[in-house]
Design a protein around this nucleic acid. Structure first.
Length: 403
DNA sequence: AGGTATTCACATGAAACTATTCTCTGAGTTAGG
DNA sequence: TAACTCAGAGAATAGTTTCATGTGAATACCTGT
C-alpha cells in the first residue's frame, strides 16, 4: 500500500514526466490520415473509375479485394471524400453511401441492410414491421428525387453474402433500370478473394466490371507508414531505435496487416507509459504482442456460446493432471459431470465432438485426430493458450458458469 | 514370419427435430378529412 | 379512408439429436514353413 504522501508524490511524478503520447488517435484504426502511403496505384485507379461521376456519367461498378489491414477501406473513403469535395465545388450532385456489413447491427438480414441504405439517404424507418420490398421502394424513392449519382459502398460484403445470400446484390445491380433520374454505382469491398467466385453469375459480371487488388504491405512499406503516424502520435524522440523496424517485421509476418502494426505500436506505447519510462524500446513491442494475444484469447473465450465454454472449461480442468494430452472421451465425461452439477442435461457426444472441433478452429486448443490402433481412434488435444493464462481463463469461466 | 481379420473409440455425415428469429399479412386503431 | 401498429401465422435459421457409416493401426488369429 502506498501511503498518502507517497500517493501524492506519485501524482506529482506522473505530471513531471513528459507524456509519451501526443495524439493517440492517430494510431487508431479508424483514423484517416491526409496522405495514404504506398497505395498510389490503387488510389489512382479508383479515382479514374469514379471520375466520370463528375461529368454526370455513371461510373462502372467496382469490386475491391485484399486482406485485412491493407488499406481498402481507407482508400475507398479517401477517394470518395475527394470526389465529394470536387463535386461540391462544382455544384454537382454526387452522393456516397457507406455501409459496413460487418457491424452486427446491420449484417444479419437483407431487410436491415436495405434499411441502413435507406436511412443514409435520409429516410426514417422503423427497425421492424415493414415488408422488405416496401423498404426497397422507399430507398428507390429517396434516391430518385433528383438527377444525381449515388455511389454505394458495401464494406465486407463477403460477410453478409455468406449469411443472407446474393439477392440484394442482384437487386442493387439492376437498380438503375428502375430509376428515372438518378444513377447508382456499386463499390464492393471484400476480404476474401475467392468470394466473387461463389456469387451468382449475373451479379459477378455486373459487380466486377472493374476490380482492384490490394496486395499486402511489405515490411519496408509498413515501416514507412508507422514512421509517418508515429511522428504525429508520439512526442519527438519517444521511440527508441529499432522499434518501428521490429513492429513492422512482426506485422509483415502476418500478411502485412497495417492495422495490426498500429495496434502493436499503440499497445507498446501504453506499456511504456505505464512503466514510466521515457522511450519505447523494442522489448516493449514483444510485451505488446503478448498482451494483444492475451486480450484476443480472453475476448474469444468470453464470446463463446455457453456450451462451448463448458467444454473448454472441462479441458482446462483436465489439462494439468493428465500430463500434456487428453482425449475426447475424458473431456466428455468431465463435461457431463459438470452438467450434472449444474443440473443441466448436457449435449450428446456427437455435438461435443463438433464443439471440440470448433475450439480447434478458433485456435484455443490444438486437436489432432490420431489412431491408437486396437484402442480406437480419437482426438488428441493440447492447449495453445500460454500456461500463465490458463489459470486466469479457468477462473473467469468458473465465475461465468457458476460451477 | 507373414498375412488377414477384428476391434476399439471415436470421427464424420446426413437427416430430422426444435426453438428462436424474421418477415409479412390482416385485423384493429388512430387521425385527419 | 389512409396510415399506422401489433399480434400471430408461416418461413428461415441455428443449434442439436438421432441414426448410420467410416477409419487407422495395434492386436488377435491363422497358415504354411
Amino acid at each position: 500500500m502506498v501511503g498518502q504522501s507517497g500517493l501524492s508524490d506519485f501524482f506529482e511524478q506522473f505530471l513531471q514526466r513528459e507524456p509519451i503520447f501526443v495524439n493517440k488517435k492517430v494510431l487508431q484504426s479508424n483514423y484517416m490520415p491526409d496522405a495514404i502511403l504506398h497505395r498510389k496505384k490503387q488510389l489512382e485507379f479508383l479515382a479514374n473509375i469514379l471520375a466520370p461521376a463528375l461529368r454526370s456519367e455513371k461510373p462502372a461498378n467496382i469490386f475491391i479485394y485484399g486482406k485485412t489491414g491493407t488499406g481498402k477501406t481507407l482508400v475507398a473513403q479517401h477517394t470518395l471524400d475527394m470526389l465529394a469535395r470536387a463535386a461540391e465545388s462544382r455544384n454537382l450532385k454526387i452522393k456516397s453511401i457507406y455501409v459496413n456489413c460487418k457491424l452486427k447491427k446491420v449484417s444479419d438480414t437483407e431487410y436491415r441492410i436495405v434499411t441502413e441504405l435507406a436511412r443514409s439517404m435520409g429516410q426514417d424507418l422503423p427497425a421492424t414491421g415493414l415488408p422488405t420490398d416496401e423498404v426497397w421502394n422507399k430507398f428507390l424513392a429517396a434516391i430518385d428525387v433528383e438527377p444525381q449519382i449515388v455511389i454505394v459502398v458495401l464494406d465486407e460484403i463477403d460477410r453478409f453474402v455468406s449469411k443472407v445470400g446474393d439477392e440484394i446484390l442482384y437487386n442493387l445491380t439492376r437498380i438503375n433500370s428502375e430509376l428515372k433520374k438518378a444513377q447508382v454505382s456499386l463499390v464492393g469491398i471484400s476480404n476474401d478473394v475467392r468470394f466473387i467466385e461463389n456469387v451468382d453469375a449475373r451479379v459477378r459480371s455486373s459487380l466486377g466490371e472493374e476490380d482492384i487488388v490490394f496486395t499486402p504491405y511489405n515490411a519496408l512499406e509498413l515501416k514507412e507508414i508507422l514512421e509517418k503516424r508515429a511522428s504525429s502520435a508520439f512526442r519527438a524522440n519517444a521511440i527508441g531505435s529499432g522499434v518501428l523496424e521490429k513492429c513492422a517485421a512482426y506485422a509483415a509476418k502476418e500478411h502485412g496487416d497495417a492495422r495490426r502494426a498500429l495496434d502493436l505500436l499503440r499497445a507498446a506505447g501504453e506499456i511504456a507509459e505505464r512503466e514510466g519510462v521515457q522511450h519505447i524500446l523494442p522489448e516493449h513491442i514483444d510485451r505488446a504482442e503478448d498482451r494483444i494475444e492475451r486480450d484476443r484469447v480472453l475476448e474469444i473465450t468470453v464470446a463463446q456460446p455457453k456450451q462451448s465454454q463448458i467444454v473448454l472449461y472441462s479441458i482446462l480442468e483436465l489439462m494439468p493432471n493428465s500430463g500434456k494430452k487428453i482425449e475426447t472421451g475424458e473431456i466428455y465425461e468431465r463435461y457431463l459431470q459438470l452438467c450434472r452439477q449444474t443440473g443441466s442435461s448436457g449435449l450428446t457426444q456427437r455435438r461435443v465432438s463438433d464443439l471440440i472441433g470448433e475450439l480447434d478452429m478458433i485456435g484455443l486448443i490444438n486437436a489432432k485426430v490420431i489412431s491408437k490402433g486396437r484402442y480406437g481412434r480419437t482426438r488428441q488435444i493440447y492447449l495453445t493458450i500460454p500456461d500463465d493464462m490458463v489459470q486466469k481463463i479457468r477462473d473467469k469461466l468458473k465465475a461465468d458458469l457458476e460451477v
